[in-house]
Structure formats: structure tokens, C-alpha cells
Simulated assay, not measured.
Amino acid sequence: MMGDKDYKQVINGALDALAKESTPQITNPSNKNEVFLHEITRCMRRSYFDRFDSLEPEGKNFDVVLGGLIRKLPYGAKLGEFAIDEIKLKGQADMITEDIVIIFKTIKESPENPSASDILYLNGCMWIFNKTEGVIVYMTGDGKETSFALTREKRMFEEVIRRVRVFSNLIADKKTPILEPSSECSHCQYYERCYIKKHEEKQLSISELFGSKKK
């Protein structure tokens, strides 16, 4: 706090505005025929809660902020879609240049391999934008960069299509998806909905506490 201004609040507001402007918005959560790629390449239970009973995550998602800035560049990607029967699968890469789809991720440490969800997302983007090559770029806070190049794969996209149909049916039936445990669970804002049961208090007498029995 400096003077009468809360600079942290101002900064958070600016980041939230940028994220909102650059992130595809779900205008009708109950629309089962509009599914976004990020919803089904991560935990679908989390995506379902985001639609119908959302909570704000504790930290800022700097992937969203970084992606939003990149998409404003000349090579920034627009929102694309892929028809799956009556369902429109919508997705957005960060950049498309020289027919290569690129997504950027911020991370604490350089990974040895890309995450499964990032591979699914990039592969989905390649099908949505009809490209055959893609790159995932991981960037750390100290400026290190690690890249992974991938080619479009059909069977992987068939798994995405299967998940799209499952998620669409769950939206239509208003049914919460099953648990999909992963390393992301521990910092998910919905962790307690999935793993922590309500604690039921039971009053104990002094005699019960020390193992004494009433005569």
C-alpha cells in the first residue's frame, strides 16, 4: 500500500482484464454443442465446475497472460473450430508462423518431456487449424527455454474427440465428471470438493478420552 492506492489490486485488475480479453469466453455454460479444447485436455471435472459452480484460483495463470500478449502480435492465432457432428470444438493456439502451431507455457523448472495435457492440446490445435507441425515452448522465470516439436497424430485426436462427446453429454445431463487424479490436483481450487469429506464432530467425555468405562 502506497498512499491511498493499493497497487497490488491495480496490477491484479490489469492482469485479470488481459486474461479475460485473451481467453475464449463461454457465454452459455449449458450449451453442450460448444466445447473448448482446454476443457477436455485437462481434468474435465475441473472444467465442469468452471462452467457451473466456479471458484477463482488462488494464483494468477501466467500462461493465460503470456498467451494473450503473444496473440496480439502479427503472428498471433485467432480462435478456430472443428466440427464433430453437431458439436463445435473450439481452440486457440498462441502463434501460427510458417505453418507451425506454437503454444507457450510458463513453468518453474525446464521439463525433460512435455506434459500429456499439453501434447493433447497442441495436437488438437494442429487439427483445428489444419497444420501438420507444432511446437510446445516451456519458459522458466529465469529465462530458460525448452522446446518440443511434434507432428500431427490422428489416433491422439480421436481420443480428444471421444472426450469432447463425453463432456458434451455430461453438460446435457448436468452430471459431474468422474475424478481424474493428476499432479495438478494439489493446487486446483476445487481440491476440497474432490478429496476432503465433511468432518463430523463427535463429543467425547473425559472418561471416554482416557479409555475409562462407566460402571
Rank of each mutant, 00 (worst) to 15 (best):
I161M: 09
M126V: 07
S147P: 01
V166Q: 08
D142L: 03
T176G: 00
E145F: 13
K154D: 14
A149H: 11
V137C: 12
R155V: 02
F167A: 02
R165Q: 14
E159C: 08
L170P: 03
G141W: 09
R162I: 03
K131D: 04
A116T: 15
E158G: 03
L179D: 13
D142P: 03
M156N: 11
N130F: 11
K175R: 15
G143F: 08
E158M: 07
Y121L: 13
R155S: 12
K175H: 13
E159Q: 12
A116N: 14
I119C: 13
S168H: 07
E145V: 15
I119L: 14
V137E: 11
V137M: 11
M139L: 14
I171S: 03
M126G: 02
W127C: 03
E158I: 09
S168D: 01
I128F: 09
T151W: 00
E153C: 14
Y121E: 13
K131A: 04
N169H: 12
K144H: 11
S168T: 10
C125W: 06
I171C: 02
D142N: 15
L150C: 10
V135G: 02
G134K: 02
E145Y: 11
T146M: 06
K174T: 12
L150M: 14
G143E: 00
R152P: 00
Y138Q: 09
A172L: 13
